[in-house]
Design a binder for these strands. Structure first.
Lengths: 197, 197
DNA sequence: ACCTGAACACCGTTCAAGT
DNA sequence: ACCTGAACACCGTTCAAGT
């Protein structure tokens, strides 16, 4: 049976979910597909490109058109979807972060577009809106890489167990929202278009 | 002559500056020091730990006590020093970013402390100040990784050459300041302590 | 205490040659 | 067009044994 880009990406995503990014190697992927390592290079020029395709796969849910019309809600919605997408795959944040840095994912560019549009609605000039979008993206990726590495570290080791108060320190969701609100507040100051609240 | 941690770190930094992070391998470092790869593992438990020590070396200039007393100036000062430190070594941002994610650098913790103190002066509660510090750190690292990869990409290839206007799009320094101001504005909104201007 | 020798178990990538 | 075979040039880490 013939090999296709999509079967490659599907199996790669499966490997990622089961064993993590360290074990997502070209050789292992080839073995799992019962082909020679060289075969993969007919479909992808190199590993970076393959990882970019996996990043696109992971980010599909985050690319859907936002439901909210108010710009602060739209930013919150896109970022929440982004974080959820990253968290639903083992080492998802790390993989997407690497693909972002390498500029290998079309889906990341799409998400950046959604964020830039929201920033423009906040009143920023196009060039500033682009910068703001990248800033938000860096925040979400950085935060989620942190969060996920802690999660996976805790899942294997001993963790202090059950805090009584659910403040920003113990609840990652609250911490995420806090940092995002910091940026959103900054946007409304610089853009001049304040949120409805 | 005996091997010491500091000679190891010094040679590793030298390798980084000359050939980049991809060529900073344990085997190459050993070769350059005229020892067997195994010798390195007497001084460092693993590669991550060695890279953490290099990150500490890189970040030394960023750990100096800030000169400014006003909190927004202090944040700007620390972040500018941080960015400069990263930019003065090949792949410096990438290396420190990795050590941050791995939690292997004491110097990063120190810088986080400086930022958290400034955020507290802006009027945030301690837990919030810690989160704000991490948010700023994610921004600076993410931005500088981007900037540096573009720099090094341009240095080897063809670049469009000389924009006439020095706006945020063409001037990395202005873009950096813009994103940082976004966060600083957010801090003053949430903290209630507005900057002097 | 500090290092060597030698191995273990891998990597990404290329490319002539086959079908 | 698509894949195999086989190589090239490497990795990080471990550990008995030497000094």
């Amino acid at each position: 049976m013939q090999l296709h880009k999509r079967t490659l990406v599907a199996k790669a995503t499966e490997l990622l979910d089961s064993y993590g990014i360290a074990d997502l190697t070209m050789r292992r992927l080839a073995r799992e597909l019962d082909v020679t390592p060289g075969a993969l290079y007919w479909h992808f020029a190199n590993k970076q490109q393959l990882l970019g395709a996996v990043a696109d796969e992971i980010l599909t849910p985050a690319c859907a058109p936002p439901r909210h019309s108010d710009w602060p809600d739209r930013i919150a919605e896109v970022c929440a979807r982004l974080r959820n997408a990253l968290l639903s795959h083992t080492d998802g944040a790390e993989l997407v972060s690497a693909s972002f840095a390498a500029g290998q994912s079309a889906a990341i560019t799409e998400v950046l577009g959604l964020l830039a549009a929201a920033a423009a609605d906040a009143g920023l000039h196009p060039a500033q809106a682009d910068l703001a979008a990248r800033t938000i993206m860096h925040y979400v990726l950085g935060f989620t890489v942190d969060e996920q590495s802690r999660m996976q570290w805790d899942a294997a080791g001993a963790l202090p167990e059950e805090q009584s108060v659910l403040d920003e320190r113990s609840d990652p969701g609250a911490a995420f929202t806090f940092g995002l609100d910091l940026l959103t507040d900054g946007l409304s100051v610089r853009g001049g278009v304040r949120p409805l609240s």
